[in-house]
Amino acid sequence: MAELLFIAVALLLGMSAIAGAIGVTLLGGKFLEGAARQPELVPMLRSQFFIVVGLVDAIPMIGVGMALYMLFAG
């Protein structure tokens, strides 16, 4: 049973990491693309980028929290 728990925790943490990484990478890539295409809009793109990047990792962090709960307190 303990082995299954560790596998579940590893899957949750791994999937969360992959999801967060894909989200932030796509966002960063689009920001650089936009900045290269229209450098004069960097201040505006930057503000929007800051705001959206703060929202990307919500679901991954919930997954991480649940995995840690299963690992340490479950």
Binding site: G28, L32, A36, R46, F49
Partner: peptide, 14 residues
């Protein structure tokens, strides 16, 4: 103001 530095800073903060 350099987009690459902005991106690096955001990644580190994240």
């Amino acid at each position: 103001d350099n987009p690459q530095k902005i991106l690096a800073n955001v990644y580190i903060s994240k």
